[in-house]
Nucleic acid binder design. Sequence first.
RNA 1: GGAGAGGUAGCUUAAAGGUAAAGCAGCGGUUUUAGGAACCGUCCAUCCAUAGCCGGAUAUGUGGGUUCGAGUCCCGCCCUCUCCGCCA
Length: 811
Amino acid sequence: MSEVAYDFEKVEKKWRQYWVDTNLYETRDDDPRPKYYCLDMFPYTSGAGLHVGHWRSYVLPDAWSRYKVLRGFNVLHPMGWDAFGLPAENDAIKNGIHPAINTRRNIENFRRQLNEMSPMYDWSREIDTTDPDYYKWTQWIFVKMFKEGLAYQAAMPINWCPSCKTGLANEEVVNGECDRCGTLVGKKDMRQWMLRITKYADRLLDGLEPLEWPEKVKTMQRNWIGKSEGAETTFTAVDPDGNEHPLVIFTTRPDTLFGATYMVLAPEHPLVPTLTDTDRAEEVAAYVEVARIQSDVDRTTVLKEKSGLFTGSYALNPVNGEKIPIWVADYVLMGYGTGAIMAVPAHDERDYAFARKFDLEIREVIASEEGVSDAAYVGDGEMIQSGEFSGMDSTAGRKAVVAFLEDKQLGKGTVQYRLRDWIFSRQRYWGEPIPIIHCTKCGPVPVDEADLPVRLPDVDRYEPTGTGESPLAAMEEWVRVPCPVCGAEGRRDTDVMPQWAGSSWYFLRYTSPRDDDQLLSESGKVWLPVDMYVGGVEHAILHLLYARFFTMFLYDIDVVEFEEPFVRLLNQGMITRKGKGGRVEKMSKSKGNVVNPDDLVRSHGCDSLRLYELFVGPPEMDAEWSDRGIDGVHRFLKRAWNWVLDHNGAWSEIPSREMLTQRHILVKKVTERLEAFRLNTVVSAMMEFLNEVLAIGDAPDRETVEVFLILMSPFAPHFAEELWATMGHEPSIFNQTWPDWDETQTKFDTVTVAVQINGKMRDKVTVDADSEESVVVGAAMESAVVSRHLEGREIRKKIYVKNKILNLVVG
RNA sequence: GGAGAGGUAGCUUAAAGGUAAAGCAGCGGUUUUAGGAACCGUCCAUCCAUAGCCGGAUAUGUGGGUUCGAGUCCCGCCCUCUCCGCCA
């Protein structure tokens, strides 16, 4: 037994201080080593603090960063705070503490908790999205977008809680209800700032292709962007007075144009009042009103019965002049396509359900084996009942019909996206003020870039006003400013940016966090783009899409030299644990199943917890937390500690052949598994190694132990550093180089070969490595078990795989 | 309805065509006034057979297939989890 017990508390305190004192984690732009930028998704600083599930997502990239350091890279591994936004503001309101103060407290708690993990963050690069020196540049980007025509104002229906009398962000609408009072959320038309992300739809789609991202995330983004090719076609609507109105629809299936038996307008469609006849006007208006105040959530998630009303008017199909009824129904959305459709019930599931309910004609125009008597047929096939196009395959037919429409000027081929422009205004307090001044003569004018940032004023009342305006609107002395263009009296925009604004470009700022003159310093550019980005899959769409959009924009205005910010993405899995309801689910305070990492650091040590967070399961998969699991890795560390100290100073001069082989196997396994990011199996390789060398029992040689410690250091840094020093080395172990392995040294002198008979394992024989077949067969024949199975049977075939198995096929 | 991930010993996970392995739990021991912790050892998945050992058969959700050999490859089915969803 070693004299010095593993006192993790003392060891961890000592080295944590040492690394800080010696600036081990300071990262320099001009370091000659090749750069590597490993980024964690920075936390949203809620009041709840970190649990072991969060810890995992920070330990993984930290271990990876430390590995990259040992591999000779100059690693940038920064951390900061995403601290503006609604949850922070609501939390502050609830606690009756000003958001600025509340946020500061939360940040300090997060920083303290993260430091418990001993991360190699370069804290000199810390950023905070609520810092005016930071959001100055968030506003700067907005000004640039405004100047490029990408930021514009539009009247948009927004989520509106009639009880709280306030606009709500989508995040605040839960199952169609106001998150705060439970009232059904409706819609209200308000003038909003919008960002023209749709202009980038194609680039956002095409850019995904080469990225080393999980396929799932790429698929989700593709679906979100939702590109569909089709045609716009102009029908002619005839109102009750006999006046004609062009009615444009979008369809992805122009080949089914002859199957259109009715049309549907979205309730908000501007032609609805015109086309509704007087008998139906009241009923239709009521229907439209109900649909209008319903939220998108209600209209799109409830997949039950279709509803709708006939307007009393008809439209003419441009390809055959047929007269078909025009309906209004809420299954058609104003926000997609043109807000109007031609309904082809035979070949569209929604139209089919609607037609069945309202007894409308279902006309088959694509031939299929199944027919359309039970359900719509949505596949391809031969076009029938389609005039001159009959007999054509529908795939070719789509192009032919589009060509026909274009020729007759009845329509054109177009592309539609599901992606909408980004609603960028919030009528709230805790966010970046939108840097625009409204002038009665000049209209909206951006704040002069030299005058940025527009500081968020300190107000006494930061609660939502109830008028639908931001609390900032009440600050007359702040609002009233001269117009930057003409000098006349202007008014500041009083909306703020959404929570996502600051996080859409923060990864750039870490490279030049204190540059007051530009968003990104020349010297900081060396780091970009991000080589490895680690975070939860919950950001698969919004944050990652917004960040890509911002980056592409900054590329277009020559701020950065690349279009895609994140080369490689890793989504770490959640930590789950049995909650109050007895169900195994994601850790959260409300489920009562959180485990606080601070407690485990105290009881088992930071290194044990780091190791267990990695060991708990494959990084990208969810893992169930086991309260006792950490004991296993803790014992492993103690055993390893004793193994090193027991032999310290009494090393074996020459490593035994077996020890040497174990060492090379370990380096190989750990390196290969690390490169594949299978960190859980790296830890188990360490355990297996220790079990093997303890079984050998010989004193290890010095080099084997040194190698072991270097391999351990990314995962259990204090442990490795302490033993490294105890062996007489100068700190720090992180100045060492990752060891290499010799393939020829990973082989043992003798190997155990399994002997199978007809594919079933019967015995094992030990032979010299690389033995020929005859030798192994000879050894196998001496086995009693084998000979018993061979008795009275003839060997038909021998299959020998060197050093692995011998299979005897008998008759 | 669509997309993705997954189902291996009581639990969490390895094994990517060739001996089913690691940790936890369990069991036995040492230490201890005792319990716990720690440490050491061990490990029996099921069934058949046996006084007991030796032995045999069946075992990676399930049913087929390919192969000398399948947890692994192919096809069908069942179950779990996550995300998306009236997008024309």
